[in-house]
């Protein structure tokens, strides 16, 4: 069963096509890596998927519906687009309380997710004093506030130190063990190879390869396959 589906998605900014006729399917209950060089159109595709950007044509649907049509989306889809999204002069806890209120989620759940991402100690600290790793964990806490079945994570490993990456791997595994569908974009190819079940590779807004990681890699590593596929397309 597909949880997410891109269907001939096109997003143009002026004459430039950031995403060009992208079609791909993300299976439910699996971790899918969304790979591509910088500027390949990954973030734009994800922004179209969650209703922040309007597709020029085609569609991007979650559970066969536009994100904007989802009832209380936070309880169905958790999203991390970048470490922005929180007010820098408010504490992590207050930032999450604002999000929780808008989705009708209790403040006790806020404390629960802060514990899950190991930020309880820093809950009352202002967000601007957080390290990059703490900001990423706060974003992840926001994504799981509504205990959704689908997680969409754009470069969650960006800027993390090895300890942060190890923590993220553990976190994603724990989420996957709960049967959640995870779509994660990343540049950490070695890390992705150990984490994901399926991959989608795009370049210049177009699909280059998709399928189970074994099928896409063949012989060698994900990095070899990624370089071979994206170079071939250039």
């Amino acid at each position: 069963m597909s949880a997410i589906r891109f269907d001939s998605l096109v997003k143009q900014y002026g004459k430039q096509a950031a995403v060009n006729n992208l079609s791909a399917t993300i299976q439910a209950g699996r971790i899918t890596g969304f790979l591509g060089p910088n500027g390949a159109g990954k973030s734009t595709s994800l922004r179209c998927l969650v209703g922040l950007a309007k597709p020029t044509s085609g569609s991007a649907k979650i559970l066969d519906r536009d994100y904007r049509e989802l009832e209380n989306p936070l309880t169905q889809v958790g999203t991390v687009l970048d470490s922005r999204g929180f007010h820098p002069s408010l504490s992590g806890r207050k930032n999450l309380q604002i999000v929780a209120a808008s989705a009708g989620i209790s403040d006790s759940r806020v404390d629960e997710v802060l514990e899950l991402v190991e930020l309880t100690q820093a809950a009352k600290k202002r967000m601007k004093n957080y390290s990059l790793g703490m900001k990423q964990r706060l974003s992840l806490a926001g994504a799981i506030l509504g205990n959704p079945q689908i997680l969409i994570l754009d470069e969650p490993a960006n800027g993390l130190d090895p300890a942060g990456i190890a923590w993220l791997r553990k976190f994603l595994r724990a989420m996957a063990d709960q049967g959640k569908t995870i779509l994660v974009s990343s540049h950490q190819l070695a890390e992705m190879q150990n984490t994901v079940d399926d991959v989608i590779i795009i370049n210049r807004g177009q699909l280059i390869a998709s399928g189970s990681i074994k099928d896409v890699i063949g012989e060698g590593t994900l990095e070899d396959a990624f370089l071979r596929l994206t170079e071939g397309a250039n």
Partner: peptide, 14 residues
């Protein structure tokens, strides 16, 4: 300015 519009419209896309 702070990018909180992203969180706001993700929670309530209407």
């Amino acid at each position: 300015r702070h990018g909180t519009a992203v969180a706001t419209f993700l929670t309530a896309p209407r």
